[in-house]
Amino acid sequence: MKYQKLQVCAWRVKYLLSLKEPLTTHQWRSLADGWDGSHLEVFPIATTSGALYKLTLPDKEGIITGSSLSCDIYAVLLRYRAEELFTEVMNRVEAVAYL
């Protein structure tokens, strides 16, 4: 799994994680189910018949977004805890990506 820091803004840091394949809806749900206090929203994209996923982390410490059409996932995390949170995001995403 490759990753890169994309943006450092006001109180968030935006990271990119590149997987080998897009996560499925099932995998997104597993990610949410295994993360107490997180909240998953799924938005259909009519034009491309895809889906957009938005996982809000507990205590609003970050948002993870991705789509059914891309291997890339974006994690926008609270700036002062960004490195610690990003390690946890990577571990959890890796765990569901290879289910």
Partner: peptide
């Protein structure tokens, strides 16, 4: 750079435009 660049590197862009 910031608003439009941020849009171009987003899950929304990947889902709607990038294909």
């Amino acid at each position: 750079f910031n608003t439009l660049g941020g849009i171009m590197q987003s899950a929304e862009w990947d889902a709607v435009v990038r294909p």
